[in-house]
Design a binder for these strands. Structure first.
Ligand SMILES: [Zn+2]
Ligand SMILES: [Zn+2]
Ligand SMILES: [Zn+2]
Ligand SMILES: [Zn+2]
Lengths: 159, 159
DNA sequence: GACAAGTCCGTTATGTTATAACATATGCGC
DNA sequence: GCGCATATGTTATAACATAACGGACTTGTC
């Protein structure tokens, strides 16, 4: 279990990497990785933070790629549907996926200080959830796990 | 682990019970269980389903208890803050708590067919989350667990 | 009882997030 | 080129949520 998001890393490299992965995934699955979709993913990767749809839209607007809400929401729907991004329900915001391709039930840790969102694999959580569910015959299709708290960095260096 | 919500039960009794509990809890903690707050909890208990703030407001309006959004949101804030109700982020909706008083990190199972929401204790999930978190030094303050799927009832009797 | 402080409530207005709906365009197989 | 599916541009609106302010009511204190 490693959490990208609270650690220093070669950001430039990680963007390029993720974009290449996304590219490959779309090619494999005959998905159309159009300019807007590509750009929205880049924006999310660049910030490495959860962004609201309207924040993204603002960036797109500056770049002349569309200024109406559906532009952002459609791109986000595509990215989320295809596992390239996730929606953080708690924040009504979106993040690029840190574990592209893996079939994951992601869990998120949201630092309320610095707003960083880290994605952690949560397979074990899913199994426990499934166990609880099976007792009542409930079939789990999707699970969301979002924890709010304070990251190590912000605990050490309070504002 | 028992899940109220997908099982038949004496609904009338369960409402009365919960209200009495709430009453007691408010008395103990010197909280003001005002008519609006009381009524909103009753409405939630009565439906035994997740309701949007505006759905609740509609009921209140019919009964002459207020017609502006803040009326509903203030009552909901009170109920959520004091553990008498929960917000389901995924649905932007609210449910009465099924385990009043217990210090719980609740998990929810949302049936996408019949819209029923069941609350299950999720202490074990929390511990796993804490474990994952501790590896990166993240301190978990609040956790949210929401599973979407299909309940036993709806699996047996598809629409 | 007078007063101050705190809490709750009514109301207006506005902010934020998300989607419906329809016209237009673009790509692709045939 | 034609027909179909998919993607985009655009307008409008729906759905969810809060800010802000003044008045009413409660509660504790003198
Ligand atoms: Zn992911
Ligand atoms: Zn932080
Ligand atoms: Zn509860
Ligand atoms: Zn159901």
């Amino acid at each position: 279990m490693s959490a990208i998001g609270f650690e220093e890393h070669d950001h430039h490299h990680c963007i390029a990497d993720a974009m290449q992965n996304a590219e490959a995934l779309c090619a494999t699955n005959s998905l159309k990785f159009t300019p807007t979709r590509r750009r929205v993913l880049e924006i999310l990767l660049d910030r490495h933070q959860a962004m609201g749809a309207y924040d993204i839209l603002e960036v797109l607007a500056v770049e002349g790629m569309g200024s109406q809400p559906p532009v952002a929401y459609r791109a986000l729907d595509f990215l989320v549907s295809n596992g390239l991004a996730h929606k953080i329900e708690r924040l009504n915001a979106y993040v690029a996926c840190s574990h592209q391709g893996e079939d994951h039930t992601p869990g998120f840790m949201i630092c309320t200080e610095c707003k960083t969102v880290a994605e952690v694999p949560a397979a074990s959580v899913r199994s426990i959830l499934g166990e609880a569910a099976s007792q009542t015959g409930f079939r789990v299709d999707r699970a969301m796990i979002e924890a709010e708290g304070v990251c190590a960095n912000c605990q050490e260096h309070p504002a």
